[in-house]
Amino acid sequence: MSDRSQLIETGKPFAFDEQRDAEFERLATRYPTRDSLILPSLWLVQEQEGWISAEAMAYIADRIGCFATQVYEAATFYTMYNLQPKGEYHICVCRTLSCYLLGKQEIVDYLQSELGIKPGEVSTDGKYSLEEVECLGHCGSAPVVQINGEFYEYMNVDKLKELLATMN
């Protein structure tokens, strides 16, 4: 467990855009209770904004008709919900078993020195964020890196160099 208790306020109200609104209403027909919409709604916010603000949580609670604490509880428990803005390129390196055996540390070290940030940080220009994550379910093609949701397998420093070059 890690401390994920800090909420950030933007000072601006939040609302789903049209597409997310429609998806929310579709999902509402799929569950017998409205509380089940909490996790899907948090995903919708994150898809729309990249992260989840205090205002967005209040909005979700309002739309669902549940307590704000329920939304807060879920948002802080599940580690994939971003409670602060991430970099334009959010780079996750698997740190677990098979990736560890096949040299994930070399990849983390290279990214740290190249980007000037440590796992858990965002670069000052907001371009990159780095994170070490647990097994990503691609152990047969370890080591594995996930960037903005896309998987990159059999990683090594040379491949990373090429990848970073495409991000400029």
Partner: peptide, 29 residues
């Protein structure tokens, strides 16, 4: 028959069957 996909959000424990149910119900896993 309806099939609905419910996405987790990064918690290994939700693979445990009752944590999984809690998570579908909108709670902590």
């Amino acid at each position: 028959l309806d099939i609905t996909v419910h996405r987790g959000a990064g918690a290994y424990v939700c693979g445990e069957e009752t944590a999984l149910l809690e998570s579908i119900e909108g709670k902590k896993g």
